[in-house]
Design a protein around this nucleic acid. Sequence first.
DNA 1: GCCAACGTTGGC
DNA 2: GCCAACGTTGGC
Length: 152
Amino acid sequence: MNYWLMKSEPDECSIDDLADAPGQTVPWVGVRNYQARNFMRDAMQVGDGVLFYHSSCPEPGIAGFAEVASSAYPDETQFDPDSPYHDAKARREEPRWLHVDVKLVRKTRLLPLPEMRSDPALVTMRTLQPGNRLSITPVSPVEWERIAELLG
DNA sequence: GCCAACGTTGGC
DNA sequence: GCCAACGTTGGC
């Protein structure tokens, strides 16, 4: 079992949107970074723990727990000319972009980014490293436990 | 809106 | 394969 932090812009899909989605599950479409794609394709397994992170918003931070609910499968938005995620170079015979489904486990209080940064147990988090921009990053069991502790 | 970091593109 | 230009991310 692995743990992950996945960033979502609340304008696009917030923790409340996830809670309101059918089956409290959303397809994590729109990842257009190879490293993040490879995490989903090669390392994620159904049941993996997910920290649902709100990014690019007034109060960035962890908004709840979720879990990986499917293995990776082709992202349809890459073939849709009307989608902001359209990729003109993607071919159906060999899809470039994949995604998993993510299911809500539990909404929590917001754990704000500054609180994460100030916690000595969390300084190792990949998402907190300078210059990191990956929308999906691995989380260690120790980091996961600490966050579970902070969020009760 | 700014800007640093970093990934991707494309000419050579 | 190099590398400059460009686009995106995301906190502030």
